[in-house]
Design a protein around this nucleic acid. Structure first.
Length: 271
DNA sequence: CCCGATTCCTGTAGGC
DNA sequence: TGCCTACAGGAATCGG
């Protein structure tokens, strides 16, 4: 499921093929997503040139002359490049045919994602304006997490998955970062020391950078722009390993529910 | 304000 | 083998 590393992998994969290319044709086969595809989307895009693609949190931003496409992959979405001859897959809902001949196809079985068109400054858009800092930016530090967590009673895992605190940390990487930092995910966010938050911020950066290097994590259906899976799944220490032995201390990993999310951790070395 | 619960959706896995 | 149910989850929204 696309978290930040998967969205970054997608961005890097598709950018060389669609930046500075003109959109020749827009095909929308399905418009029911988290929000409906705007009816005017195709007419706003056709014959427009795409500028430099960027990413904010898990949103992809594709600039065109009169605004930005904003794309969110939800939890089962992927964007991949195909030649026009390549067979359509079930759930290939939207497709942009580029002047280069490549087709950008949006595949999203669960339809939790969406695409929208923003005319104004995208950073002023309500969906982007309230977001916290990027995890790989210098703004995310141990002292930042320590400061904004004071008084918070929710669990530290829920806290780092809150997009107002820091963006792009979903269930997989939150679980992995807490394991790496040796912190029990159930701990109240407001009662964790500065020292531990320094370890946690370093762990978040480490696990996300490493996952980006591996091309993301493929559990079921994530594929890069080139249609290839990511390889970080092989490096997961706790996510999806409930009942197995901890790679560090051998204790049996436990699964609990925090914030309605499965949370696997090691009772032996996460305290 | 804060925090937890609910909601959207479909493919997959597990139980019987 | 086939049917049924539970589960996966990002983020908006609601309610206490």
């Amino acid at each position: 499921m696309p978290e930040l590393p998967e969205v970054e992998t997608t961005k890097r994969g598709i950018a060389p093929y669609i930046e500075h290319q003109r959109i020749e044709c827009v095909t929308i086969r399905e418009n029911r997503f988290r929000t409906p595809v705007p009816e005017y989307l195709a007419e706003r895009l056709v014959h427009q040139q795409i500028g430099q693609i960027s990413r904010r949190a898990k949103y992809l931003l594709l600039p065109v002359a009169e605004g930005h496409l904003i794309w969110h992959l939800g939890m089962s979405g992927s964007l991949r490049l195909e030649t026009p001859e390549a067979a359509l897959k079930k759930h290939d809902h939207i497709q942009l045919t580029m002047s280069s001949g490549w087709q950008l196809r949006y595949h999203d079985p669960r339809r939790f994602g969406f695409v929208d068109f923003i005319e104004d400054d995208p950073m002023s858009d309500s969906r982007l304006a309230s977001l916290g800092p990027e995890p790989l930016s210098p703004i995310l530090t141990g002292s930042y997490l320590y400061r904004v967590s004071r008084g918070k009673k929710s669990s530290v895992k829920t806290f780092i998955m809150d997009n107002a605190v820091v963006v792009g940390v979903g269930n997989i990487y939150a679980s992995e970062a807490l394991f790496m930092a040796g912190i029990d995910p159930r701990r109240a966010a407001g009662r964790i020391s500065m020292e531990r938050y320094q370890r946690l911020s370093a762990a978040i950066k480490s696990v996300l950078s490493s996952a980006i290097e591996q091309g993301g994590t493929t559990l079921r259906d994530f594929v890069s722009g080139q249609g290839e899976p990511g390889y970080f799944a092989q490096k997961l220490n706790v996510y999806g390993r409930s009942g197995a032995e901890c790679v560090r201390c051998g204790t049996t990993l436990r699964n609990i529910v925090l914030g309605q999310r499965a949370s696997v951790y090691c009772p032996g070395c996460q305290r």
